[in-house]
Design a protein around this nucleic acid. Sequence first.
DNA 1: GTATTCGTTGAAAACGAATTTCAATTACAG
DNA 2: CTGTAATTGAAATTCGTTTTCAACGAATAC
Lengths: 141, 141
Amino acid sequence: MGSYEQNIFRKYIADQGLKTTLQREIILDEFLRLEHPSTEDLYQSLRSKHQNIGYATVHRALKLFAECGIATVRNFGDGAQRFEPCREDRHHDHLVCTRCGLIIEFENSQIEKLQQQVAKSHAFTVLDHRLELYGLCERCK
Amino acid sequence: MGSYEQNIFRKYIADQGLKTTLQREIILDEFLRLEHPSTEDLYQSLRSKHQNIGYATVHRALKLFAECGIATVRNFGDGAQRFEPCREDRHHDHLVCTRCGLIIEFENSQIEKLQQQVAKSHAFTVLDHRLELYGLCERCK
DNA sequence: GTATTCGTTGAAAACGAATTTCAATTACAG
DNA sequence: CTGTAATTGAAATTCGTTTTCAACGAATAC
């Protein structure tokens, strides 16, 4: 058993000659419940139930998640890296309200297609992308 | 006299009750010659001719450039903020090679239009955006 | 012009997030 | 089991960003 992400992660761990640990399992489990946690966010989120998991371990786990492809690193302009679970569903992008911090996710296949065209015209192979629209949400403007 | 960016900057400085200084003029001039400098890049770039301009001053100037709209802050995944001159208010996006670090700029008005549509459907007012495509350039793949 | 005011400067210190160090611990192959 | 090598958590370190502060300098008033 295990979720889609757990399977990918465990396979990656095995392939790299790394080790499965209870901490990593717990961190992954909690990570998948959150939206765009920074290391600090996730660490705090675990803190109540697992006082014994250290900040460094959380951060190291997040980097592994990014390496094995179940998370991507994002940066919304506050000074911290945020890690986002790449859920089985499609890639999505973000609308970020610069006033209140609201983040709305969206996806648009036409934009994705145009991106592929652009890349092709520059002989580029696209592996990943980031699209963020910054502005004011309905309530803030 | 003065470039487009100089005029905007000077007006902003005046409007805010700040002061025009020789350092700021020099920093702006050099900034406009570069592509995506980090504070460190620009500081080093000035170093040869102006040993007397400090790192903090360079960084403070860059933040002012971003505030007054002649520069935007970017983040390409190395741990440093990069400041990009907003030339001729023509927005452009980036193809980033994750292997060799090559950065190709492009623009695509169809993508921009679709972005506006997406924002509108969420009652968002877009003030700025970032689009980066990460992958391998022709030589690296 | 001169004085006064208040923003600016540069060096150094402080800050904060990311990363590394290290001794103790633990997973797991043999 | 046992030995080996990866992992852990706390603390230390690194590195980019930001702030502090005394000296300085630009703009305004006189």
